[in-house]
């Protein structure tokens, strides 16, 4: 875990893509490594990796204490990148997130003191407790990959992944994210409680020193950047694209607010990353079906759970 200043993002694009098999090996390694620490959340770990590889962000909606922070830290540690955590509170200001310019008495100049958003993995805890203006600051950073402080635009490190959590325990004292902003998260997950076996093993692991302290990186940032290049090159064939369009059309017919084109794009990106995780250089309908629930459920607004609409679409729309 490095906490060193502002990571250099300039040379990110020059990293050559990894081969699919190399990328798959890399992701397997990362997943295994994280599982050293986190028990019973294999799927969640994969979802986080997919979001990272697909340049997306995650929204976790859960009760406190199921391991959200540890999960984020473990992923960050495994790829040897920076991790920051922001606890959102009602009095948190946007500058508390992005950073501020501070006048340096010695140099007689303003110098930028970066906020917690300047990290490869940012955990925004209980984002719905902060006022909308502060939420917007984070959301802008997520969407643009940059922040603007006092008129000066600064690029965020690459890769940059936000894992935001929402607390749904005390709904009275929160500012719920509007649909338009929820739409900016690639995925929304619910970790849930571990099952009996997993919890038993978890308790055993944490009996002595917490294993997160001894977790070693298994990949470099450049590896990760290369894998992201690989994902971008994954084939998305016409039948699969048509399948996604039909699914989206189905949700638009069935729900008051269906999946936007942005949602459809997000799904294809996630599916590309999923294909790499599964060792393929092309997307198959199965990848779409795996990703659709976590990518689309929170984008559908209707009187029944969005997940139901997605499931109905998956069973109804014919795979060709």
């Amino acid at each position: 875990m490095t906490d060193a200043g502002i990571p250099d993002s300039e040379h990110a694009e020059q990293v050559p893509p990894l081969s699919v098999s190399a990328a798959t090996t890399l992701t397997d390694r990362i997943v295994d490594n994280v599982e050293e620490v986190i028990v019973g959340q294999h799927d969640a770990i994969e979802h986080i990796l997919v979001a990272t590889l697909a340049r997306g962000h995650l929204l976790l909606e859960d009760v406190p204490g199921v391991g959200k922070t540890v999960l984020g830290r473990a992923v960050a540690t495994s790829v040897d990148c920076s991790f920051k955590r922001v606890q959102f509170t009602p009095d948190l200001l946007p500058s508390d997130v992005t950073g501020v310019n501070v006048f340096n008495q010695k140099t007689r100049e303003f110098e930028f003191r970066p906020g917690p958003v300047f990290a490869n993995v940012v955990l925004g805890d209980e984002i719905n407790r902060a006022p909308p203006k502060t939420q917007a600051a984070l959301l802008e950073a997520m969407a643009e990959g940059q922040v603007t402080v006092d008129g000066e635009t600064r690029r965020l490190p690459d890769p940059f992944t936000v894992i935001a959590t929402q607390n749904d325990v005390e709904p009275g004292r929160t500012y719920d994210l509007p649909m338009a902003e929820v739409d900016r998260f690639m995925k929304k997950l619910r970790l849930g409680y571990p099952d009996e076996d997993a919890e038993t093993r978890l308790l055993e692991r944490v009996a002595g020193a917490h294993p997160i302290e001894s977790l070693d990186p298994v990949a470099t940032l450049d590896d990760l950047r290369g894998a992201r290049q690989t994902v971008a090159n994954v084939t998305l064939s016409e039948p699969v694209r048509r399948y996604v369009s039909r699914l989206a059309a189905y949700t638009r017919e069935e729900a008051a607010l269906g999946v936007s084109p942005r949602g459809a794009i997000a799904l294809t990106r996630a599916a590309q990353a999923r294909a790499v995780l599964n060792g393929r250089e092309y997307v198959v309908p199965d990848d779409i079906q795996t990703e659709a629930p976590s990518v689309w459920s929170h984008r559908i607004d209707t009187d029944r759970p969005g997940r139901d609409v997605v499931d109905a679409a998956l069973t109804t729309v014919t795979v060709e």
């Binding site: 198959v284 199965d286 079906q289 998956l314 069973t315 795979v319």
Partner: peptide, 9 residues
């Protein structure tokens, strides 16, 4: 094969 079932599944 069901309509929503992928070839692989």
């Amino acid at each position: 094969r069901r309509p929503g079932e992928t070839p692989r599944a």
